[in-house]
Design a protein around this nucleic acid. Structure first.
Length: 639
RNA sequence: GCUGCUGUAGCUCAGUCGGUAGAGCACUUCCUUGGUAAGGAAGAGGUCUCGAGUUCAAAUCUCGACAGCAGCUCCA
């Protein structure tokens, strides 16, 4: 039974929560401001609201995503009210709910710093305690423009709003233009915390004014908020920059090489294993490997367009009056190789792969650990094919990408299909064909994707595969792009069955995107505990005392013979300490050897995150490891 | 590149009111010969990012540069 308190104070009962929705709609918007204060299936749910927006009346609870979104958006309004009080004269641009919380872009007369957040938070708590109702007010476009004539952000928003009626929501002394919906009153907002202050451009446009963006998070209960904050703390420990340094994988020395990684031996192992795996996937799928020069002359980059279009992002140099650029892309190298031979339709498709080291002078604020660097390695490939072959070739690339992410245990956040942008080259007919080929390939393979209209490259549409890092940032990884531009610019052709010259289509594909970025995301995904085949240190053999050091070295030698990465820890310290250090170094297996093991020719095995595996013969141990490595099995689940 | 914050030992961080530096881990040496996450002792280690300024005196206050972090923008 559900009881609804109507605005006039009378109560109305309904049989179930499900039916409330329909009844609410039939009663109309007047009900929208009512609070559902009754019982749902016999349980008191005081965080259940009926809400109204421009488009619908709906029922949400704080347990739903929709309810949380409502709370978060409402919290943004409350924060705005608090800021307006603490910093009079502040103008408010835009304050949506986002994953886990909300933000508000504001233009305040004085800068807001992180230290001010406490002040704002305190004021927010006061507002929430007062429990002011969120009231919906509607103005005509003309009234709205007159009321906010002094506020350039509001005017801008009013201008881009649809319809002639503009809705505003107010609570306390604060009003903001908003489609709604909101929780019924400020007191319904759960536990919140202001997180950080950052800059953000108006309309996301770097040529426009920069506003102050204040981020906050909101959850239904204090406990859930604490849990969320704890999750963030835990996620920070997975940061690949910290783990990279701890595990001796990679590190950064910005003074000497800003935005470029220095790789230590453990990192090189990881890098090479991954590279070899990607190479083998390419080989299995008919790709041949090429290598092209690191530095090529200006004329080449003018033909490709990179000299002009990325003037400030290229590393260039001049020798004896000639100008050069360090390659920012690998495609021109591949095109030169294509052009130096004559290919017929019998030769197509040509599938050419290259682990290409490229350099791009990214802006200082854009660099981020391994995931955004100035020097990186693309597992690049270029497919030259006929328009008829295009879709099958795209499918082949998609399949490789899925295979690699499955093997490495990473899950896509989303897949994007980006179509023709405003500024583009190539005939509409070609674009249509290419977009249809990409979409057809995705659809045929039954893959869900997000359409991103107008976000393709200027030379062709593309499919991007996106992943998230430890703290939820999304990164573009694999990509499949169709290109009409470069075949044209380099004037490459193939000979068709009628002996006519035809223009091939070019596909650019990268599976990992870049080895660096892939390793960065992989490191965070596994918090350094990689699948065994990738783990830099697979086994560490620990001698209980000096007397067994020789045996420990023998075991290491036997393991190495089986292609297993093993090291002996023969230092003079307690076994407990050796175990601790082995665990901290994330050696996947610890093999402990003492008098018992020497006698029996065995090892006492301990697996990271799993625990004691008991005693086994060195041969059995080596065999089991070799099999797991060969199978590229994912690591066992923790605990 | 933009906005904000930060910069102390190899690492993680203390350092009050301005009076020229401290801890833990790591490192070196010695002792210790031990069974599943830290044995003990001693020692060494710093131009407090850099450059100016204020001051009798600056790690500390001010300005600038550089770098890092968060977000924004960008990512062929």
């Amino acid at each position: 039974m559900v009881t609804i308190t109507l605005p006039d104070g009378s109560k109305k009962e309904f049989e179930s929560a499900l039916s409330v929705m329909d009844i609410a709609k039939s009663i109309g918007s007047g009900l929208a401001k009512a609070t559902l204060a009754g019982m749902v299936n016999g349980t008191l749910v005081d965080t259940t609201y009926i809400v109204e927006s421009d488009s619908e009346v709906s029922i949400v609870t704080a347990k739903d995503e929709a309810g949380l979104k409502l709370m978060r958006h409402s919290a943004a309004h409350v924060m705005a009210e608090a800021i307006a009080k603490v910093y009079p004269g502040t103008k408010f641009a835009y304050g949506p709910a986002i994953a886990d919380g909300f933000y508000y872009d504001v233009d305040s007369p004085e800068p807001i710093s992180v230290d001010d957040l406490k002040k704002i938070e305190k004021e927010m708590k006061r507002i929430v305690k007062q429990n002011g109702k969120f009231e919906r007010n509607e103005l005509t476009r003309a009234e709205a423009e007159a009321k906010y004539a002094e506020d350039e952000y509001k005017l801008d928003n009013i201008k881009s709003a649809q319809g002639d009626v503009i809705s505003f929501y107010s609570q306390g002394n604060f009003e903001d233009m908003c489609l709604g919906p909101h929780v019924p009153s400020a007191g319904k907002i759960g536990s919140f915390k202001l997180m950080s202050v950052a800059g953000a451009y108006w309309h996301g446009d770097a040529t426009k004014q920069q506003l102050t963006r204040i981020y906050g998070t909101t959850f239904a209960t204090k406990e859930e908020l604490a849990e969320h904050l704890n999750r963030i703390e835990e996620a920070k420990k997975r940061d690949h920059r910290a783990i990279g340094k701890q595990m001796g994988l990679f590190e950064f020395h910005p003074k000497e090489a800003q935005g470029m990684a220095f790789w230590r031996s453990n990192g090189v192992i990881l890098y090479r294993e991954l590279e070899n795996y990607l190479r083998s996937v390419g080989e299995e799928n008919g790709f041949e490997e090429f290598m092209t020069p690191q530095i090529m002359n200006r004329e080449l980059w003018e033909i490709s367009g990179h000299w002009q279009n990325y003037a400030d992002k290229n590393y260039t140099c001049e020798k004896d009056g000639k100008e050069y650029a360090v390659k920012p892309m690998n495609c021109p190298g591949a095109l030169i190789l294509y052009k130096s031979e004559l290919y017929s339709h019998h030769d197509l498709p040509l599938r050419w792969a290259e682990f290409g080291h490229v350099h791009r002078y990214e802006g200082s604020g854009e660099i981020h650990g391994l995931v955004r660097v100035r020097g990186f390695t693309q597992d690049d490939a270029h497919v030259f094919c006929t328009p008829e072959q295009l879709q099958d070739e795209i499918k082949g690339c998609i399949k490789q990408i899925f295979e690699v992410y499955k093997t490495t245990g990473l899950e896509f956040d989303h897949i994007e299909l980006s179509t023709k942008p405003e500024k583009s080259i190539g005939a509409q007919e070609l674009w249509d064909k290419a977009e249809a080929a990409l979409e057809g390939a995705l659809t045929d393979l039954g893959i869900d994707f997000v359409l991103n209209p107008g976000d393709g490259a200027f030379y062709g549409p593309k499919i991007d595969f996106h992943l998230r890092d430890a703290i939820g940032r999304s990164w573009q990884m694999g990509t499949i792009q169709v290109d009409f531009s470069l075949p044209e610019r380099f004037d490459i052709t193939y000979v068709d069955a009628e002996s006519n010259k035809q223009r091939p289509v070019m596909i650019h594909r990268a599976i990992s995107g870049s080895l660096e970025r892939f390793i960065g995301v992989l490191t965070e995904h596994y918090a350094g505990d990689f699948p065994l085949w990738l783990a830099p240190e697979q086994v560490r053999v620990l001698s209980v005392v000096d007397a067994y050091n020789d045996y420990a070295c023998e075991v290491v030698a036997k393991l190495k013979k089986k292609g297993i990465r093993a090291k002996a820890d023969t230092r003079n310290c307690k076994i407990g300490a050796k175990i601790r250090e082995g665990e901290l170094a994330k050696a996947q297996f610890l093999a402990i050897v003492g008098s018992n093991e020497v006698e029996a020719g065995s090892v006492s095995v301990r697996r990271r995150k799993v625990g004691d595996q008991g005693v086994m013969s060195v041969e059995d141990f080596a065999q089991a490891l070799a099999e797991e490595i060969k199978s590229k099995a994912l690591p066992p689940k923790a605990e």
